[in-house]
């Protein structure tokens, strides 16, 4: 295993210390509770917005803590949902009396731990609303199963509802918007290589030199199917088509196009994919009103990408464009 780390068990803690050392203007790090909290939290009267999940997806979520986005993030061990204690501590740290929104990605672990945390917070008199993102079209949706994974839409949702909370909207409205963004967004991802969880020390799966995984999540897991390596044009088509059809996108509609790198793929390749995606959307007369290209929701050093399309409405655009100042996303201030 080749990694810029000291001991595998210290990676998350030391990265948090690094964040504390370099971003003290933006956030404070509570090492004991293992949470990253916006420097000026709690903001009286503002809805608190928190999220969390396993580490290894950086910059998500810790890189999104700051003005106009998250009030706190709870990083778990690598690829492991954080525990309710962290979520409760974060909820209390950001509670400004207007309630707290929990943004939860749909994984059994994340859902169960956030559920317990919400119960505990409510028991302490804090109003909590939750949204569970489940945008991954690679997974069959069914009420009898664990359902679809929460992936790329989570990033967009955190920005949009974060902007709305910053603007002073009440918890019910923020939660409603969160649900709306989740409903209007879909994603799909693929991997060219596996990644290595530090504590495990070897790649999660083996992939032949001419193979790739289609329909992966963000935990270094194998995808829905293993197929022969293909061109960027073919791969983009494989990812975009299910998204467009599941979302029922029609000519004349406008989207936010998000081309996300899984961590080990260079930016130049993401732009090659972005180019293919732009061509596909243009061919269907769907306009790209906003876009995001880069490594935002990753799987350690995995090579690959995901595509997310979000059907935009005017409110979403307003809050997407609203000022944000976090370590990983910043504009307007």
């Amino acid at each position: 295993m080749k990694k810029l780390i000291n001991k595998p068990e210290d990676v998350v803690k030391e990265a948090l210390e690094g964040i504390a050392a370099l971003h003290s203007d933006l956030v404070r790090v509570d090492l004991e509770n293992q949470i990253i909290v916006r420097a000026d939290a709690p903001l009286q009267g503002k809805v608190g917005v928190i999220s969390g999940g396993g580490s290894g997806h950086e910059p998500m979520h810790g890189g999104f803590v700051g003005h106009g986005m998250l009030d706190a993030a709870c990083p778990g061990a690598i690829f492991t949902s954080p525990v309710p204690d962290q979520m409760l501590a974060a909820t209390k740290a950001v509670n400004g009396g207007a309630g707290v929104l929990h943004i939860v990605k749909n994984y059994t672990g994340d859902v169960l731990n956030f559920e317990m945390a919400a119960e505990l917070a409510q028991a302490e008199g804090i109003e909590v609303a939750s949204v569970v993102t489940n945008d991954d079209v690679a997974v069959q949706d069914s009420t009898y199963t664990a359902g679809r994974r929460g992936v790329g839409v989570t990033v967009l949702l955190e920005k949009i509802v974060g902007g709305m909370a910053e603007a002073g909207a009440p918890l019910a409205a923020v939660a409603e918007m969160a649900q709306r963004v989740n409903n209007q967004g879909r994603s799909m991802g693929m991997a060219l290589t596996s990644c290595t969880v530090p504590a495990k020390g070897s790649p999660t799966f083996e992939l032949g030199a001419d193979e790739m995984e289609i329909g992966i999540g963000i935990h270094g897991e194998p995808g829905r199917r293993r197929v022969k390596l293909a061109s960027a044009a073919e791969i983009t088509e494989m990812l975009a088509t299910p998204i467009i059809s599941d979302l029922g996108l029609k000519a004349g509609e406008r989207v936010l196009a998000f081309v996300n790198g899984m961590g080990g793929t260079p930016l130049i390749e993401l732009y090659v994919v972005a180019n293919e995606l732009a061509k596909i959307l243009k061919g269907k007369n769907i306009s790209i009103a906003r876009s995001l290209v880069g490594n935002y929701i990753t799987s350690l050093e995995m090579a690959g990408c995901s595509i997310t399309l979000l059907r935009l409405d005017d409110d979403m655009i307003r809050y997407w464009d609203a000022p944000v100042h976090t370590a990983a996303l910043r504009w307007g201030m």
């Binding site: 492991t80 525990v83 672990g109 169960l112 731990n113």
Partner: peptide, 8 residues
């Protein structure tokens, strides 16, 4: 301390 699905 466990987290994930197995923790809860």
């Amino acid at each position: 301390t466990v987290g994930g699905a197995s923790g809860p």
